[in-house]
Design a protein around this nucleic acid. Sequence first.
DNA 1: TAGGACTGTGAGGGCGGTAG
DNA 2: CTACCGCCCTCACAGTCCTA
Length: 354
Amino acid sequence: MIEYKKKLTIKDMAKALNVSTATISNAFNRPDQLSESLRLRIIEGCQRLGYEGPNAAARSLRTGVSGIVGVLLADSLSYCISDPVASQFLAGLADVLDQRQCNMLLLPGQEEQTSYKSRQMESMVDGYIIYGGLHPSKRFQRLLQQSKPIIAVDVDTTDFITVNIDNQEGAYRSARLALQHRPQKVAIISLRLTPVSSVSWATCDACYASPASVSRSRWLGYMQALQEYNYPLEQLSVVDVPVNTHRNACMAAFMLLSQEERPDVIICMSDRMALGALQVALQQHIAVPNDLKIVGFDGIAESQFTHPTLTTVQQYNELKGQMAGNMFLGLTPRQNVILPTDMLMGETCPEVMS
DNA sequence: TAGGACTGTGAGGGCGGTAG
DNA sequence: CTACCGCCCTCACAGTCCTA
């Protein structure tokens, strides 16, 4: 059984070592403020007595800075940890925070009810990085009132400084690539464009009516390409998915590929959707890319392990995380950033040779 | 001995919570 | 409602040492 002794404070150390509290503080935090010999004597004395240095909670109380970044997630914690795009973003952010001895606190945006614990956690952070979307949750309303710095990533908003990719352009390029094959029947698997709780058919009108979001920007990119190719929108099939999971992807693909008039192009708003579509197509012995072209969006590593490999839009999620982190810590100017995307040419939708 | 550099000290302040 | 507490940092200043 571990025995907990009385917690030692800077006062105890000052008294024991016969110096002032400020000198103890300086010995740990500002070594240039005292002689090397005194500093060593203090550090050695503190080690001997079991004092590990100034209390972080007290320091943040005094300075108002904790070194903790709150990351407000659009989805649940479990989803963000398992989703390759979100985890790449978090890895990039963690990279920057690691270098500056800072930490992050992951906060799910969809908070069911306000608790003392959640308020306590929010009070600990120096500011927020909102990732993946804005939720009209109580938590979101509270953080707006806190006047702490906020940077939004993958969020279509003018209310905060944002780090985004050019979703519309990326989507436009991927759709154009698919449309070069002059398909008879085009389908789209969209992500959270309409307010549905399960995988559902969606109308173009409903998709156009959705509020500003990453998905809507991608939708506009697809529409831009479809119009360029004079594709009749009344023939377009759209299935909207509420959460970007493999299960939902398979369900959406199954719905599309079970239609009487089967699509020969499926344009997906994420690689997970595209990989689900690919799996269902292969199960149904549909030849990809000969009878069905599939394009994704994200460029996750998994998309290049399949056979055939996925044609997709490569976005640089780690870089996104690093940029958000640098901006948050004031290492780079706080200004809106739009990162470029690239087409990742896989086998599910080859380029048309002219 | 004067003056500058270096070293160390004490007071004040910050903010949320709690006791009176 | 007010006073106080917790804990540390910052700042102004005092003390000491060194050099010319």
